[in-house]
Amino acid sequence: MDRKIRVLVAKPGLDGHDRGAKVIASALRDAGFEVIYSGLHQTPEQIVEIALQEDVDVIGISILSGAHMTLFPRIMELMQEKGLDDVLLTGGGIIPPEDAEKLEAMGTGKIFGPGSSTQDIIQYIREWAESREQTETK
């Protein structure tokens, strides 16, 4: 199989700043991933539906508006409803460390705060994909 890691980069909610999302999307593309970019102002419903149709491995969310404690749980809920149980939900933005901890405890993947390097994000996704492949072949 010639599998490629497919990542959805999405921006939920009302904030209209997608510079960060675009930087991440380009960095992931340059790392050899297939990146589906959704554009601005997506609802959680839209994001999960895109993830389903595109059969992505990873959903990466960029939130700068402060609504992360509502949006992440809602996306997780919808992912469960649609059976996307082997898809990684990760993301970043202006998210305080204590909120990131809470979200991770709820079951999201790693949450990246301001100042995270794109290399760290790439490495995190690669390692996640590798460990998943190992569990799949078992």
């Binding site: 490629k4 999307a25 593309r29 050899g32 959704s38 895109i50």
Partner: peptide, 10 residues
């Protein structure tokens, strides 16, 4: 790089 940016859905 083998990567791709797929942006038509926007």
């Amino acid at each position: 790089t083998g990567g791709a940016l797929l942006g038509d859905r926007v």
